[in-house]
Simulated scan of single mutants.
Amino acid sequence: MTKFSISLFAAIAVLAGLILAYNSSALTLSPPLYEIGAMPGQTLKTGLKVFNETDKANTFYFEAQNFTAKGEEGDPYFVGEIGKEDLASWIELPGPIHLESGELKQVEFIIKVPEKADPGGHYAAIFLSTSPPSLEEGGAVGLAAKIGTLVLLKIGGEVIEEGRLIEFGLVDGKRIFEHLPIDFLVRVENLGTVHIKPAGTIEIRNIFGIKTVEVKVNIAKMPDGKERPVGNILPESIRKFESSWQASEAENQPETFWQKVKFEKENFAFGRYQAKLDLDYGAENDKKLTAVLSFWVFPWHLILVSFIVLVLVLALLVFSIRRYNRWIIKKSKSKFS
């Protein structure tokens, strides 16, 4: 199972966190993520849907801000550098819009790509708020009462697509486990000039080389029911993805001995396993990142109880056989006396 992580889920979660003064159903701006391509000098026209779900009319204001990657979780960091010549300054937004309660409106915005725009990735967010655009001290964007849409623009030309696998390991660093789940950690660095979206599988085989399970990495089910890659990695940034091999969902970790026995039975695995990572990325999905690791699963609580039960059963069987033999011998002697 893939845990998820700029993915569609991350975009929704981060931008939803910017709302603050609203709750999640107060105002809807869709789609939450645009991934588009263009050539230098090209003009793009596209639109957004704005839905006022509050119980009163209001006036809303648009603004655009560039963003970069922050940390390894896929979170965007919004910057408000005045005069910064990049995607935010290429976007022409509509003026303030007035929406009645329950009103849905389609608004258009234009992206005018300069003739001398650098090939590769350019990133901005379109925000909608109840107050005119403003910058806080230090150039950071004032984030109160805002929702937004991320725009990932890829400008054609001499684009470099290059990713490097920094780490393929286990989340807690262990190599011996008592039970499932087994949590895998994948860290990828983008050395290119455009965002990449590595996605694939971790194939797990047992000690006999038999395929046990296949775990998805950076793949999620979309509203239409189809599975697609979700998490982008921006240029000059690192992103981590976590995926898990598990048999059942567990709300709490077991604490007592017998709880651990039950948990190991429900999340059973035994022996040495090999996990092979296979990720694809690139415009043609023709670039690969691969790695292999091994680990052990030894459910000793369950094995100990099973061993004790087996010994008791064998002891009972031996005792029963001996008692039966003595009864047969005794019966035979009494018959011939």
Rank of each mutant, 00 (worst) to 15 (best):
M1H: 08
M1F: 09
F9H: 03
F9E: 03
A13Y: 06
L15M: 11
G17R: 06
L18M: 13
I19E: 08
L20A: 11
S24C: 07
A26G: 03
L27M: 15
E35I: 01
G37D: 06
M39D: 11
Q42F: 10
L44R: 03
L44N: 03
G47R: 07
G47Q: 10
G47I: 02
F51S: 10
F51R: 05
A57W: 07
T59G: 04
F67K: 05
F67T: 02
T68L: 13
E72H: 13
E72I: 12
E73D: 14
G74V: 03
E81P: 14
E81I: 15
G83T: 09
G83N: 12
E85Q: 15
W90I: 09
W90N: 08
G95A: 11
P96K: 04
G102I: 01
L104G: 13
K105F: 05
E108C: 04
V113E: 07
V113H: 13
P114E: 08
A117E: 01
A117D: 02
G120P: 07
G120T: 07
H122G: 03
H122F: 11
S134Q: 14
L135H: 11
E137T: 14
A144F: 15
A145Q: 07
A145L: 03
K146P: 08
T149A: 08
T149F: 02
T149I: 05
V151G: 02
L152W: 01
I155T: 04
E162K: 12
I166W: 02
D172I: 06
K174H: 10
I176E: 14
I176S: 11
F177M: 01
E178T: 05
E178Q: 10
P181K: 02
L185R: 12
E189I: 00
N190H: 07
N190Q: 09
L191S: 02
H195R: 08
I196Q: 00
K197Y: 06
K197D: 05
T201V: 10
T201N: 12
I204Y: 05
T212Q: 13
K221H: 00
N232F: 08
N232Q: 08
N232E: 08
L234H: 03
L234Y: 07
L234A: 03
R239H: 13
E242N: 15
S243I: 00
W245V: 00
A250M: 12
E255C: 02
E264K: 00
K265D: 01
K265T: 05
K265L: 11
N267K: 04
F270S: 01
F270G: 02
A275D: 02
A275S: 10
L277H: 03
D278S: 12
D278A: 09
E284N: 15
K287L: 09
T290K: 10
T290M: 08
A291K: 06
L293R: 04
L293H: 08
W296D: 07
F298W: 13
L302R: 03
I303D: 00
I303Y: 06
L304E: 11
V305P: 01
S306N: 12
L310I: 10
V311A: 14
V311R: 05
V313N: 07
L314K: 06
L316Q: 07
V318G: 12
F319M: 10
R323L: 12
R323A: 10
N325F: 15
K331H: 14
